[in-house]
């Protein structure tokens, strides 16, 4: 899996490309902005071709470690396959989910300002 980090409006965007499973999940957990409790991250899932519960667990576990679990990881561009894994477990309830990354960044920036 390829992890690309960029930023916009003061928010770190972590874009994932490839399969998010038991093999790649530790790589996501090891990503510094994902692992840092105080960094709000937009996780762009558009190019995730497949995600099972190991990938889901990595995202949920990373959110749990955030100082604000409900907003520390904001999700964008979830495709149908990824959505299925979230909805099967009800994990979508834990996250703010946006259809496009720009909207996710705007939301994350607003929440970050609100906390400071």
């Amino acid at each position: 899996m390829i992890i690309t980090e960029t930023s916009a409006n003061g928010i770190v965007i972590v874009a994932l490309e490839g399969n998010l499973d038991a093999l790649s999940a530790p790589k996501l957990r090891g990503s510094p902005p994902v692992a840092d409790p105080k960094t709000t991250v937009v996780l762009d899932l558009e190019k995730v071709g497949f995600m099972d519960s190991s990938g889901l667990g990595a995202i949920v576990g990373a959110a749990r470690e955030k100082s604000d679990p409900a907003c520390g990881i904001v999700l964008s561009c979830m495709n149908d396959k990824v959505r299925r894994t979230f909805e099967t477990t009800n994990a979508q309830r834990l996250f703010h989910i946006f259809d496009d990354t720009a909207a996710a960044v705007d939301f994350a920036a607003t929440r970050q300002i609100a906390r400071t």
């Binding site: 099972d52 519960s53 667990g57 949920v60 959110a63 749990r64 099967t88 477990t89 009800n90």
Partner: peptide, 19 residues
Amino acid sequence: PDIESYPENGYGLWIIRRV
């Protein structure tokens, strides 16, 4: 899974039974 506790594991068999 007790999703409100942000579990990192324990989803696999539940997902299999659901799908």
